[in-house]
């Protein structure tokens, strides 16, 4: 289903609101543009680099699991005003999946804007009820003896997944490893796949 466009009346309402706020000196177009640019600097690449570092640096891994917010700020994520970031460590036999059943809480500072599917009513409803079938829709089929733990992100606490490092990536550089990580692997709907080794 393509994303529906906002209705013309919604666009008009936004412009009237912005004009009213500008007339009162509360918000300017320049501030909106600057905030938008700052928001767009956050992307799953930040989370990807954190995971890659954790795979090769045990000290950073320990920090990431103990204090995700501080670990994220070391990678340039702007954590001011953000709820704490929790990191869920996948282990052999344990897989994590993150959802926000009530709306769309998402660790935006390290993953960027939440994807459309994460905000969808179907994902929010089904992730907690039928996670294995949800995962299978992304082609992620876990053996029955792997436990799936579903974690609800909230307004007070945001979660991302630290996946298992895939076999076949021994000796890879940090940037190569980071290239395996996407928003989908950081939420837990996909596992990182080594694929063909990248040229070193």
């Amino acid at each position: 289903m393509p994303k529906p466009d906002p209705r013309p009346e919604s666009i008009a309402l936004l412009e009237r609101l912005v004009a009213a706020l500008a007339a009162r000196g509360i918000v300017s177009e320049e501030e909106i543009a600057a905030k938008r640019a700052a928001t767009e600097r956050a992307s799953p690449q930040i989370g990807a680099r954190m995971v890659a570092r954790a795979w090769i640096d045990p000290a950073f891994r320990a920090l990431l699991l103990a204090d995700g917010s501080r670990a994220a700020s070391l990678f340039g994520a702007d954590m001011r005003g953000q709820p704490p970031l929790g990191v869920l460590e996948d282990r052999p036999g344990l897989h994590h999946l993150v959802v926000c059943t009530l709306c769309s809480c998402y660790p935006r500072a390290v993953l960027g804007y939440p994807p459309a599917w994460y905000k969808s009513q179907a994902y929010r409803a089904r992730a907690v009820r039928d996670p294995r079938r949800v995962l299978a829709e992304w082609g992620t089929v876990l053996p029955p003896d792997v436990q799936v733990r579903v974690v609800d992100s909230t307004a007070e606490y945001r979660w991302m997944v630290l996946p298992l490092r895939p076999a076949g990536t021994e000796g890879w550089e940090e940037a190569q490893l980071a290239s395996l990580i996407t928003a989908e692997t950081l939420v837990g709907v996909r596992l990182p796949q080594p694929g063909p080794a990248l040229p070193a």
Partner: peptide, 23 residues
């Protein structure tokens, strides 16, 4: 929603979306 498939696409946000988000 038990039988509603999840659309895995992530279409880009519109100008309206980004303005509301920033505001």
């Amino acid at each position: 929603f038990r039988c509603t498939p999840i659309e895995p696409d992530d279409p880009p946000l519109s100008d309206f979306d980004r303005r509301v988000d920033a505001l």
